[in-house]
Design a protein around this nucleic acid. Structure first.
Length: 708
DNA sequence: CTATATCAGAGGTAT
DNA sequence: ACCTCTGATATAGGT
């Protein structure tokens, strides 16, 4: 909540006390106090914020865009305290449904469940009917326009699973059939139809790309969650990434489906991806595996193939020493059965050759190892490169390999070089410049959080004490039984006897990679009463910081928060630490208008309405107010944005006969390193006594103009 | 923890 | 039909 220039130094804040010395876990100064008061923040005297007229909440020229955002009226959080109110939604599929809800209807056991291909003649890519569910029709264009080219084998997708049902369905083993296509269809049915209009626009947009990726993530995680909880012992490798991707392709839920040379609308240089399919779905790079994407001789008006994009991710002996130059290896020369051979000037190799001669630049994606997830990769879109040279050389194998020298086009935003810089800071070969404090947590977290200013002369935020966790977790009446679980080795997917899994609708709340499976209104974690170890997958938010964050000086928003490490969508980042206060104290602080660090769970916030069911989220058991003015963690530095990349969710943890309530922040999109972390502060209308609207400086095209 | 093995895959191009 | 700088899991090796 450092959004306002110098606002962190309130009226009572003595400038000389900025960064006072305090014991462990307290902000410690490493420099003398500024002697020149002019470098200090603006004093509190005048109105620090531009107040927006109540008549015009949106800046002129920017119309409210309700199809994708929930209108403030419809999103107002209920402030009634209904402790046990977690009504089942009437939507076709709620965010969490016990698996037996997905039992394939008898009508759908025709061996082609969920596939729209065979039904193309009558229904094309419509999202309904095939699964036997009688859902409202959402008419989707089938982006392929060709339903018969692929006749895939349809194996019965039914899975067997043994184990007790969810609470109330008894403990007898049941055979559960799960049709993932039907599940996927149900999820797609819950999407706001207007979202598809944006996605299907022939020219992509940031929204189109963003929505596509959000839907893909929801599908992928949900399918993975279901699959892991229903798989039997000897089931083979599962690929929810492919399954979700196929569904999206089949239904035409993709952006920029027309392949093109040059930039891709809606995809920014520096954007990151965690699956090849993501790049495929947004039109950045089509092949699901191959490294070179090109227009065939038919597709390009010319008689020759032309390259459009390449992925360099370690499969060949590429050279990436220079951040702006890439020596890329051609494709081919390796065959599982026949062994190594010379590469030929065909396919992608030929296309790159032709593109070089015609001077057509190509998109470059660099695949890197994901340090947070060593088994996985992260793909960085590094923008346009010019093919400057090509030659043939002998690889280590002794066979000929094509090589292409690509040079990055000037004038593009930094992307891969940011990753290189972070790497250099990490291995200490180059120092991070502008560091004021190497670790403002003073060891309070497992990873240091540095304080950086390479913008102006501000020496640091106002004094506060760093605490890593919420001080007085607010006990709430347990929604159900508060008895913890007895999963000695940690809660396991598919164990429907685990009470914690039952509370999450039959699933673990987090994937094996630690991502939230879905952003349901309340996430139930294991708590002190549970017997599972701290490594339990249901304790993700209790592990402290994982990312190397830094508090940095923004250009115009005071201090902000960002990460050296890339953050994958769905990842827990931190909780909101501070001091829990009651309603009366919160009202008082609001009235004094002197606390910029109040977390207020009752604020209305604007949220992407991709899944309208999210309108009601988050349902918090009771209002929660936290002040982080005097004590807090990194969350207090997160600024507001009307197009945020972070979202909060309430976490409930069992603790004897009560439950502890925490606020956890999750990434809602992939966040490249060094990009500011922001969430939607929301609005509090009508304003509480003494409260003022604050001018929003997020710069988003959707900026509401204010927050409060 | 890092490296290697295994293998079922997907869309796209070419045949 | 053929190709391919995947990705999850398993196993072996190293520190």
């Amino acid at each position: 909540m450092e959004h306002n220039l110098g606002q962190e130094s309130g009226p009572g804040a003595d400038k000389s006390r900025v960064l006072n010395v305090k014991p462990l876990r307290t902000l410690v100064p490493v420099f003398p106090s500024p002697s020149n008061p002019s470098s200090s923040s603006t004093p509190q005297g005048g109105a620090p914020f531009v107040c927006v007229s109540p008549a015009g909440p949106f800046p002129s020229g920017v119309a409210p865009f309700y199809p994708f955002f929930v209108s403030p009226e419809s999103q107002r959080l209920s402030e009634q305290h209904a402790p046990n109110a977690t009504p089942q939604r009437a939507t076709p599929i709620s965010t969490a449904v016990p698996i037996n809800s997905f039992k394939t209807p008898i009508a759908a056991t025709n061996g082609d469940v969920g596939s729209s291909r065979k039904n193309k003649g009558s229904r094309g890519g419509q999202l309904t009917g095939e699964d036997g569910y009688d859902n409202e029709v959402i008419d989707l264009e089938d982006g392929t326009g060709d339903g018969s080219s692929k006749q895939r084998k349809k194996r019965g997708r039914a899975k067997r699973a043994s184990g007790a049902g969810t609470a109330g369905s008894g403990a007898s083993a049941v055979t559960i059939e799960v049709d993932l296509d039907a599940v996927a269809n149900d999820i797609l049915q819950t999407i706001n139809p207007m979202v598809f209009d944006v996605i299907n626009h022939p020219d992509g947009s940031r929204d189109s790309v963003s929505f596509t990726l959000m839907i893909y993530e929801v599908l992928r995680r949900k399918l993975g969650q279901i699959e892991e909880s229903t798989k039997d012992a000897n089931s083979g490798a599962k690929r929810p990434d492919l399954k979700a991707g196929t569904v999206m392709m089949t239904k035409g839920v993709r952006s920029n489906s027309k392949k093109r040379i040059g930039i891709v609308p809606g995809v920014d240089v520096g954007d990151i991806f965690y699956f090849r399919f993501e790049m495929c779905l947004v039109g950045l790079h089509s092949p699901s595996m191959a490294g070179i994407d090109y227009l065939g001789s038919k597709a390009s008006q010319e008689e020759e193939p032309l390259a459009v994009s390449i992925v360099s991710s370690g499969g060949y002996e590429d050279n990436t020493d220079d951040g702006d130059v890439l020596i890329y290896s051609g494709q081919g020369g390796v065959n599982r059965d026949k062994g190594a051979s010379d590469q030929k000037l065909e396919r992608g190799n030929l296309a790159l050759e032709k593109s070089m001669h015609r001077g057509n630049d190509v998109r470059v994606i660099r695949g890197l190892k994901d340090v947070m997830h060593p088994t996985g990769k992260v793909y960085v879109y590094d923008g346009m490169y010019r093919i400057q040279d090509s030659w043939v050389e002998k690889a280590k194998s002794g066979f000929n390999v094509f090589k292409y020298k690509l040079v990055r086009v000037q004038g593009q935003p930094a992307a891969y070089t940011i990753w290189k810089s972070v790497q250099q800071w990490t291995d200490k070969s180059v120092p991070r410049t502008g560091v004021i404090l190497p670790d403002l947590t003073s060891g309070g977290e497992k990873v240091p959080v540095c304080l950086v200013n390479d913008v102006d002369n501000e020496k640091g935020p106002a004094y506060f004490t760093y605490i890593p966790t919420l001080k007085n977790p607010r006990p709430v009446a347990p929604l159900e039984s508060s008895a913890g679980c007895s999963c000695i080795g940690g809660c396991q997917p598919g164990n429907f006897n685990c009470p914690c899994i039952q509370k999450n609708g039959g699933y673990l709340p987090y994937s094996a990679a630690g991502l939230v499976a879905d952003l349901k209104s309340v996430i139930h974690e294991c708590g002190p009463s549970c017997q599972c170890p701290p490594t339990c997958r249901s304790r993700v938010s209790q592990g402290g910081l994982k990312f190397r964050l830094e508090v940095f000086r923004t250009n115009n928003k005071g201090w902000g928060l960002r990460s050296w490490d890339a953050i994958r969508a769905g990842t827990f980042i931190c909780e909101y630490a501070g001091e829990v206060i009651d309603n009366a104290r919160a009202e008082m602080l609001f009235a004094e208008n002197d606390d910029e660090y109040i977390f207020d769970s009752t604020r209305i916030y604007q949220q992407l309405e991709v899944f309208p069911a999210d309108i009601e989220a988050p349902k918090i058991p009771s209002p929660l107010y936290i002040t982080a003015k005097n004590e807090g963690n990194v969350a207090r530095f997160m600024n507001h944005s009307c197009s945020p990349n972070v979202l909060w969710r309430p976490i409930v943890r069992d603790n004897k006969n009560e439950s502890d309530l925490h606020i956890a922040f999750f990434a809602i999109r992939h966040i490249p390193p060094m990009m500011e972390l922001t969430y939607d502060y929301g609005t509090n209308l009508p304003l509480k006594a003494g409260q003022r609207k604050k001018k929003c400086l997020c710069g988003s095209v959707r900026c509401r103009g204010y927050f409060c």
